[in-house]
Deep mutational scan, measured.
Amino acid sequence: DWEDIVRFLRKLFELGEEVVIGDWHNHHREEIKRLIEWLEKHF
């Protein structure tokens, strides 16, 4: 279910905002944000 995936990604992203998950999070933050925005537009 796409909504569950979007919710999971958003939760992960919000957690990442508070607890910076090292370089991985910083590197992928923009991609995650773009992916969430893309999914919201399409689903």
Rank of each mutant, 00 (worst) to 15 (best):
D1T: 05
D1E: 05
D1H: 09
D1R: 08
D1N: 10
W2R: 02
W2G: 01
W2H: 01
W2L: 02
W2I: 07
W2Y: 03
W2E: 01
W2F: 03
W2S: 01
W2T: 01
W2Q: 01
W2P: 01
E3H: 05
E3I: 08
E3P: 04
E3C: 12
E3T: 10
E3S: 11
E3G: 09
E3Y: 09
D4V: 13
D4Q: 11
D4C: 15
D4N: 11
D4M: 13
D4Y: 14
D4K: 15
D4W: 15
I5A: 02
I5F: 14
I5T: 02
I5N: 00
I5G: 00
I5D: 00
I5M: 07
I5Y: 03
I5K: 02
I5V: 07
V6F: 14
V6T: 04
V6W: 15
V6C: 02
V6Y: 12
V6Q: 02
V6L: 13
V6D: 03
V6A: 10
V6S: 02
V6I: 13
V6N: 03
V6M: 07
R7D: 08
R7T: 07
R7P: 01
R7F: 15
R7V: 03
R7H: 05
R7A: 09
R7E: 13
R7C: 05
R7L: 03
R7N: 11
F8T: 04
F8K: 02
F8R: 02
F8S: 01
F8N: 02
F8Y: 06
F8W: 12
L9Y: 02
L9M: 01
L9C: 02
L9Q: 00
L9K: 00
L9S: 00
L9V: 05
L9A: 01
L9P: 00
L9T: 00
R10M: 13
R10D: 04
R10A: 10
R10V: 13
R10H: 11
R10S: 10
R10K: 12
R10G: 03
R10I: 10
K11Q: 13
K11G: 05
K11Y: 14
K11C: 14
K11V: 08
K11S: 09
K11L: 11
L12Y: 05
L12R: 00
L12W: 07
L12K: 01
L12H: 02
L12N: 00
L12Q: 01
F13P: 00
F13S: 01
F13R: 02
F13L: 13
F13N: 01
F13A: 03
E14Y: 06
E14V: 04
E14T: 03
E14G: 12
E14C: 11
E14K: 05
E14W: 07
E14R: 10
E14I: 03
E14P: 03
E14M: 12
L15M: 07
L15F: 08
L15K: 03
L15R: 06
L15I: 06
L15V: 09
L15N: 03
L15E: 02
L15S: 04
L15A: 03
L15G: 02
L15C: 13
G16W: 15
G16Q: 06
G16N: 07
G16H: 13
G16K: 09
G16M: 15
G16S: 11
G16Y: 15
G16P: 04
G16F: 15
E17W: 14
E17S: 11
E17M: 12
E17T: 14
E17A: 13
E17L: 15
E17K: 14
E17N: 13
E17Y: 15
E18P: 07
E18M: 14
E18F: 09
E18H: 14
E18L: 14
E18S: 14
E18V: 07
E18N: 12
E18C: 03
E18G: 12
E18I: 12
E18Y: 08
V19N: 05
V19P: 06
V19R: 03
V19G: 14
V19L: 10
V19T: 11
V19F: 02
V20E: 07
V20N: 09
V20L: 10
V20T: 08
V20K: 12
V20Y: 09
V20W: 12
V20S: 07
V20Q: 07
V20G: 10
V20I: 14
V20M: 12
V20D: 08
I21Q: 10
I21T: 09
I21N: 11
I21A: 10
I21V: 14
I21W: 13
I21M: 12
I21F: 13
I21Y: 03
I21R: 05
G22W: 04
G22F: 02
G22P: 12
G22V: 07
G22A: 03
G22T: 07
G22E: 08
G22N: 10
D23T: 02
D23K: 03
D23A: 05
D23M: 07
D23E: 12
D23Y: 09
D23C: 14
D23W: 09
D23N: 08
D23G: 10
D23L: 07
W24F: 09
W24I: 08
W24E: 07
W24V: 08
W24L: 08
W24D: 09
W24T: 09
W24P: 04
W24K: 10
H25Q: 10
H25C: 15
H25K: 08
H25F: 14
H25G: 11
H25S: 03
H25I: 14
H25V: 09
H25N: 12
H25Y: 14
H25A: 10
N26R: 05
N26Q: 09
N26F: 08
N26K: 14
N26S: 11
N26T: 13
N26Y: 04
N26P: 14
N26D: 14
N26G: 06
H27I: 12
H27Y: 08
H27N: 13
H27W: 08
H27D: 09
H27L: 11
H27P: 11
H27Q: 04
H27C: 15
H27R: 04
H28P: 09
H28K: 05
H28L: 15
H28D: 09
H28A: 14
H28Y: 15
H28I: 15
H28W: 15
R29Q: 09
R29I: 15
R29E: 06
R29M: 08
R29T: 08
R29N: 06
R29K: 12
E30Q: 12
E30M: 13
E30I: 06
E30R: 06
E30L: 07
E30N: 04
E30K: 04
E30P: 03
E30G: 04
E30S: 03
E30W: 04
E30V: 04
E30T: 10
E31L: 15
E31Y: 15
E31G: 07
E31A: 13
E31P: 03
E31V: 13
E31D: 10
I32W: 12
I32R: 01
I32E: 00
I32C: 13
I32F: 12
I32T: 02
K33T: 08
K33F: 07
K33V: 07
K33N: 06
K33E: 08
K33A: 06
R34F: 08
R34S: 10
R34K: 11
R34I: 11
R34L: 13
R34N: 11
R34H: 08
R34E: 10
R34W: 08
R34P: 02
R34T: 04
R34C: 06
L35T: 02
L35G: 00
L35S: 01
L35Q: 00
L35F: 10
L35V: 05
L35N: 01
L35W: 05
L35D: 00
L35M: 12
I36V: 13
I36G: 01
I36D: 01
I36M: 06
I36P: 00
I36F: 13
I36Q: 02
I36N: 01
I36L: 08
I36A: 02
I36K: 02
I36S: 01
E37F: 05
E37A: 06
E37N: 08
E37S: 06
E37T: 07
E37W: 12
E37R: 07
E37Q: 07
E37I: 09
E37K: 05
W38S: 03
W38N: 01
W38Q: 02
W38I: 03
W38M: 04
W38P: 00
W38R: 02
W38A: 05
L39S: 00
L39F: 07
L39D: 00
L39I: 12
L39N: 00
L39C: 05
L39R: 00
L39W: 09
L39H: 01
L39T: 01
L39Q: 00
L39V: 08
E40V: 15
E40L: 15
E40F: 15
E40T: 13
E40K: 12
E40S: 12
E40D: 09
E40W: 15
E40P: 01
E40Q: 13
K41N: 04
K41T: 13
K41H: 14
K41P: 02
K41S: 12
K41Q: 05
K41M: 08
K41Y: 07
K41A: 05
H42A: 06
H42M: 15
H42P: 03
H42W: 15
H42G: 03
H42S: 06
H42R: 06
H42N: 05
H42L: 12
H42C: 06
H42D: 02
F43V: 12
F43G: 03
F43Q: 04
F43M: 10
F43E: 02
